[in-house]
């Protein structure tokens, strides 16, 4: 199978079991969003797929190959990740940051060839950063900065992009900007996107498929219309909500009403 396959995954943080046996597969070309309450383990799953955390048990396959045994550079040529914690020196300009995305493709001398520079230009163009390419990343606005990081991931020329809460700390217009960009990249480049989002309405609007993680297990998966239901919002997120149909974007949305008190 082409794409990602997660088999019987167990991941621990120290002694604490966080992921307790998760199975799923993601086929190429899909936008998949992982949702779940705080501490449910959604980011942990993403970290395991991106090989930042080693699972205690279970396997992750990328195009039928075990992700922990293939050369890490080979993985990086197919799979790009955008974690939450990123760091950039105050004097790095946008095009420089984007060019780091070519790292897994470079030869021994680590020199950027003409072809690499063209890909960097292409990634900058795709993310609408043309006018900002000489700017310091540290002086950009939140949304622009996130776009610069996405451009770096694009320069990796991956077929799969993993994003860990790409909209956190952004105000609503930047959130939309980033999610629209992700959607566009998925449609024009057939880029597979796996992301963790907190905003369930955004998840419903921008994903082909939603995975619900609760207490370290995959409790439900399917298309947004099947997932966003009063019972899921009550059981997993503990809220009472009314669900409506967004006919413009052809997706469900809900308005939360109140917290559903846990009755013991």
């Amino acid at each position: 199978m082409m794409g990602i396959k997660v088999e019987d995954l167990y991941v621990n943080y120290g002694d604490k079991e966080v992921i307790k046996g998760v199975n799923f597969q993601i086929e190429d070309g899909y936008v998949v969003t992982i949702i779940g309450p705080n501490g449910s383990g959604k980011s942990t799953i993403l970290k395991a797929i991106s090989r930042c955390l080693k699972p205690v048990k279970g396997k992750v396959y990328l195009d039928d190959e075990n992700i922990y045994t293939i050369n890490t550079k080979k993985v990086a040529q197919k799979l790009a990740i955008l974690p939450q914690v990123k760091n950039v020196s105050s004097d790095v300009v946008v095009e420089e940051l984007v060019s780091y995305g070519r790292y897994p493709h470079l030869g021994f001398g680590k020199k950027l060839k003409k072809e690499d520079l063209e890909i960097v230009d292409w990634a900058i163009e795709k993310t609408g950063l043309k006018d900002l390419r000489k700017r310091f990343v540290s002086t950009l606005s939140g949304g622009e900065r996130q776009r610069a990081w996405i451009a770096m991931s694009l320069a990796q020329k991956p077929k799969i992009l993993l994003l860990d809460e790409p909209t956190t700390f952004l105000d609503i217009s930047y959130q939309l900007e980033v999610l629209e960009l992700i959607k566009e990249l998925n449609e024009t480049l057939n880029l597979t996107v796996v992301m963790v989002l907190h905003d369930l309405n955004q998840a419903a609007r921008y994903s082909d498929e939603i995975f619900v993680i609760n207490d370290g297990k995959l409790s439900k998966s399917g298309c947004p219309k099947d997932i966003i239901s009063t019972s899921l919002l009550r059981d997993v997120f503990r809220i009472k909500a009314d669900i409506y149909e967004d006919s413009i974007n052809n997706c469900p949305y809900f308005i939360p009403k109140k917290i559903d008190k846990i009755v013991n």
Partner: peptide, 16 residues
């Protein structure tokens, strides 16, 4: 330069 971007970013870029 890659390592300066953070451990997770560096891992994603194929650096051990």
């Amino acid at each position: 330069n890659i390592l300066m971007l953070g451990d997770e970013v560096a891992t994603g870029l194929g650096l051990n």
